Simulated scan of single mutants.
Amino acid sequence: MGLDVYVGSLTRYYAGDWENVADKAARERGEPAGRRPFSDGPRDAVGIRPRILEWRRALASSLGDRISDPLEWDESEMAPYFTARPGWDGFGSLVLWAAYAEHPSLRAPPALPEAWDDDPALLRCNAEGFRSRFSHLVRNVELWLPNTFRFTFEGDDVDGRRIVVGSVRMLLAQLADLNAATWGVDDDALAQWSRQAPAPGASLEVRARYACAVMTALVRQAVDRDLPMKLDY
């Protein structure tokens, strides 16, 4: 199962009015995309948008004064969108790279383990009471909102599924912190990394570098355009 990252309005996402990397490649080859539907409800933006807005109002009410800025962003079907495919191997490697940066006394595996979500460094990052410096990356977040808040929280997504939610602005700051703490490369190097998809059998670090570059570019779009970002799988 692939992993894409989407930046854009949730109306557009749930209406299916966007292409992931595989969709685009299939279209350019003249083949049907065959992507799964996102929701059991209506797939037209006109029908979906009121659901999104009601979900956002309910979420804002539940958060109350825990957030200082209103939960507001462009939810029109005309909002721009951006997407890329770090893949689970890339995203998982990036998560573990952050976990081991936070726990340098532990030795990172040379490649991403199959059961990487049970990795000891990652479990330490998620231990009760531990304040992770990379919390918006290592805490199993699936949706990042275009607001600034330091905490992550569990809540229902638009379809009622329980997910962990974070902040795009905090994620951008934490990715920059991870880069500074481990690689220390500039934007030109990140751009170069994003154009070099890892070869089969690539190391944990190579996959993490690629995913960091891809994620950084997407998060910057989310921050600049004031849009949410979510995982798609």
Rank of each mutant, 00 (worst) to 15 (best):
A202D: 04
W88N: 00
R150N: 15
H136V: 03
D187E: 14
E114H: 03
P200L: 00
Q192I: 08
V168K: 01
L227N: 03
R169Q: 14
L204I: 15
G41C: 12
L106G: 07
A60G: 12
C125K: 10
W73T: 06
A79G: 12
E72L: 02
L63R: 00
D44G: 06
E28A: 14
R133L: 12
G47W: 08
D159P: 01
A108M: 10
A101D: 11
V158W: 09
L178N: 06
A108E: 13
Q192L: 09
R56N: 05
A222Y: 00
Q192T: 10
P146K: 01
G8Y: 09
S68A: 08
S68K: 00
L3R: 01
R85M: 00
C125Q: 06
G30S: 14
A217L: 11
A60F: 11
Y210F: 15
Y100T: 06
P86I: 00
L94Y: 04
G160Y: 05
S9H: 12
D17F: 04
P80N: 09
Q221H: 15
L53E: 06
A115V: 10
F82D: 11
K230H: 12
S76G: 07
L59A: 04
W97Y: 15
E102P: 04
F130A: 13
E205L: 06
L145E: 12
D74R: 02
I52N: 03
G2L: 04
V164N: 06
G34P: 11
P120L: 07
N179D: 15
P120I: 03
R66D: 15
V214M: 10
S135I: 04
L145S: 06
N20Q: 05
V219E: 12
A60S: 12
G155E: 15
E72K: 00
L53R: 05
D23A: 11
R107V: 14
R195L: 15
A181H: 03
I48C: 05
V223A: 05
K230P: 10
D44N: 08
D44L: 07
S76M: 06
A176P: 07
R169Y: 15
A79M: 07
D23K: 04
L204E: 14
D232E: 12
R162C: 09
S194G: 07
L112Y: 06
G34F: 11
A101Q: 10
D187S: 12
V168L: 01
A33F: 12
L96T: 06
L227W: 04
R29F: 09
